[in-house]
Design a protein around this nucleic acid. Structure first.
Lengths: 219, 219
DNA sequence: ATCAATGATATTGTATACAATATAGCGGTC
DNA sequence: GACCGCTATATTGTATACAATATCATTGAT
């Protein structure tokens, strides 16, 4: 286990990301350097570095000589992010259809069976963890490290929203069924089908759209 | 014209990016803080911020307590980046087929006619500039700001390689012909055709693969 | 001679001090 | 009373000082 990331700045960046995800900040809230400095009991320097990381990941915006402000996606941007995610995953699926290995397929089936176990005890957190494993197995299946990294990054950013959505009635079962269809398409080597299945799986349409909006408003 | 970005750190980041693109650094070269500080006649502080930006865009890698090192893509990662670019643009094309406006189409035709002009005088730089405009018009056509931003970002990172490729005999003409086909597909609203045309246009296969590799080795 | 331990040096990470710019409050003018 | 300009204050950006860690060379042992 290399580099346990002893830089304070990075730790602070991760903590701040958690705080933003947990809804502690509103969109547009200022991330005050001196306030955060005393809050984390540290000087402004590591705070500034942490803020730059947040800006880099898109969770905050920096306005020169004004400060940095948290930047939560509104409905429009959220839809755009989900659509982009759908396209990225669809691309992974299409590529994976002709590239995935037997062990890759085995990992997908493994993740799915663990998803099924989570459903049987209605454990949302556990389901999401295994769901994440499933999707990352697909990224790997595309045999494109660059694409996989970006897909994983966006997945991480959408995590809070996707996780909440699972709590809606029947969503886990539907998600599970889609997973099975995706694996089937990949086993057949049917790129077109896998691509479309994954796109639909991730896309936010119909009932899922309303669920997402309801989720947004409740915060 | 707001915020002419008077932060020194940002200017330095841009300058460094240029230097990396221009081949001034080898892969793995260390970006020494004190050396850069005297080179830019500035203290280490803005240098460190600039380096963080480079790390954020993927042009450098930071190893805690060791320093930051330039990270140029090797053949494999470069192919992965082009493949990802192809998929992103293909997605934009598919979405644009049903969303692009008349003015959007007009912009595409406009960019193409300027590309044609550049070909007639064999002006590579001018061609690439208009080529860039063409692709960005497609991104906008997808009516997804998030996707467009990411596509533009990756395009920027691949810029040096794509630009060099145009110098190979006949590449501008071929590129131009493909542009025309893409616009035609979008005019018909044929998403499948537009998607595939753009994917092939961006993909690095066959002769283009060898050209790209030759380009890499010559540096 | 190779390797390990130890100390000297160099470099990164953080704190503090200073400079430059923005924000806010006040008074004046029309 | 609204708007403009000025001064005082606060906040960001940069420089410098200090601390912590890594790198390197030297020395000694096997």
């Amino acid at each position: 286990m290399p580099s346990m990331e002893s830089r304070r700045a990075t730790q602070i960046a991760e903590a701040l990301q958690q705080q933003v995800f947990s809804g502690r900040y509103e969109d547009g809230d200022k991330l005050d350097e001196v306030r955060l400095a005393e809050q984390f009991e540290v000087s402004r320097t590591p705070i500034r570095e942490a803020l730059q990381e947040l800006v880099g990941t898109g969770l905050a915006e920096q306005i020169p000589r004004r400060g940095v402000f948290v930047r939560l996606p509104g409905p429009v941007e959220l839809m755009e992010m989900f659509e982009t995610m759908a396209e990225l995953e669809a691309a992974c699926a299409r590529l994976a259809a002709s590239r995935i290995t037997d062990t890759g397929l085995a990992q997908l089936r493994e993740a799915n069976s663990k998803c099924q176990e989570a459903i049987e005890v209605q454990d949302f957190d556990r389901y999401y963890a295994q769901n994440e494993a499933f999707h990352q197995a697909i990224y790997r299946g595309a045999a494109n490290g660059f694409l996989a990294k970006h897909a994983a990054q966006l997945q991480n950013r959408l995590k809070p929203y996707r996780k909440e959505q699972l709590r809606f009635r029947g969503r886990m079962d539907q998600s599970m069924a889609e997973h099975v269809a995706i694996v089937a398409a990949l086993e057949r080597g049917d790129g077109r089908a896998a691509e479309q299945a994954l796109r639909d799986h991730v896309a936010v349409q119909g009932e899922k759209f309303h669920q997402l909006m309801a989720n947004l408003n409740s915060k």
